[in-house]
Design a protein around this nucleic acid. Sequence first.
DNA 1: TGTACATCAGTGAACGCGCGTTCACTGATGTAC
DNA 2: TGTACATCAGTGAACGCGCGTTCACTGATGTAC
Lengths: 217, 217
Amino acid sequence: MATTGANTPRERYRAQVRAEITERAWEQIATAGASALSLNAIAKQMGMSGPALYRYFAGRDELITELVREAYRSLAETFRTASAAGADLAALAHALRDWALADPQRYFLVYGTPVPGYHAPADTTAISSEIMKFLLDACAALAPDNAAPPLDAHLEDHRDWAAGHPAPPGALRRSLTFWTRLHGVLSLELAGHFTGMDLDPALLFAAELDDLLTPRT
Amino acid sequence: MATTGANTPRERYRAQVRAEITERAWEQIATAGASALSLNAIAKQMGMSGPALYRYFAGRDELITELVREAYRSLAETFRTASAAGADLAALAHALRDWALADPQRYFLVYGTPVPGYHAPADTTAISSEIMKFLLDACAALAPDNAAPPLDAHLEDHRDWAAGHPAPPGALRRSLTFWTRLHGVLSLELAGHFTGMDLDPALLFAAELDDLLTPRT
DNA sequence: TGTACATCAGTGAACGCGCGTTCACTGATGTAC
DNA sequence: TGTACATCAGTGAACGCGCGTTCACTGATGTAC
């Protein structure tokens, strides 16, 4: 007896329509960003009238919430699959970049400027920490980094964000650094801030990754 | 004979009102982001009717363009002042962070997700490369970094973005890395992605800066 | 210094638009006897 | 198998809102003789 249904035909139909709504929403977001998302436009695209969508979502905010959840789940799933296939930190980095390039606006929904007038629900933190777990695992598997900058002490004092992961302080630091550095290159690339500079963002990304993999002596 | 007027009383008045419009626009952006900017709301706040603003800006897009220019100019000015006072790379980094924290939305206007439905004018590249110039100067003044990753060759081939700056390849790379890494930490901090993690973003920022200042042996 | 004219800042009404959301309803689908 | 009823997806009209933008205008400010 499944707790999350889809047993009766009606339930299956509902799930199907809900899925199509979010699909169209992604298409819309892909071209104009999340702040331009419009329920009426989605309905029109589906050949339905606007109010029909209220059978499936309580309103615009709930739809965005669902999209945010999907984005988090998608990235977690990407990392889970990669990790299960034995991916190391470098492989996770490339998985992240591919995931981001596949749909820049989806990346921004998770790691970009907050959508104006919308605040994310609290329950995304669970998925968020699952994502971090894969990074921590991969960092803990690297050759230990014996450099111990003052930051390590701070991270040791505030390791709650690692959700009880037994990684040593050096791995905590590397996970965070992995995140912030790759986000630095990726977000600038996705936002188009390298265009006109005639640079290859892939090389910048690779160089940062290389630096992360080489421990300081 | 000044080319950019403000001679006649009328010209002075115009400049004054224009300045107040952009000031109100910044206030509005600060709370709801650039995509929520509304001409009518600004006019109401100034005790004027909506159409009055069309005496000063051709439309919403031109106003945003002006704001983008102001943001670029402001950062360039910040770096110029710091450099004139003998700032090194570390001082520039802190100037950047202070500037970003003073008005996060202004930072995002320059380095964040592009405003939906708006495309920046081409002439910002001039200011943009002035900003980069200060970074290049500061990096060229550091002890040379003899590590020569493959990225350096690519940067040597595409050094147009440095606008003819005579910095050695290592300094080019460090300038770029300075930019992407600090942006990584800063943008996540400004977007609130560290909240709930109980981390001190200032320490992350300081650690990244420290790493940038220490050349690889 | 005074008068005639030109400039131009700002108004108020209006246009058309799309938005999120509500409501009473129709008609099809599923359920119970 | 057939009938009576309940459920529920989707419609169409409507509400109120704010947006960017245009237009013909009023009235104050500045300019020229």
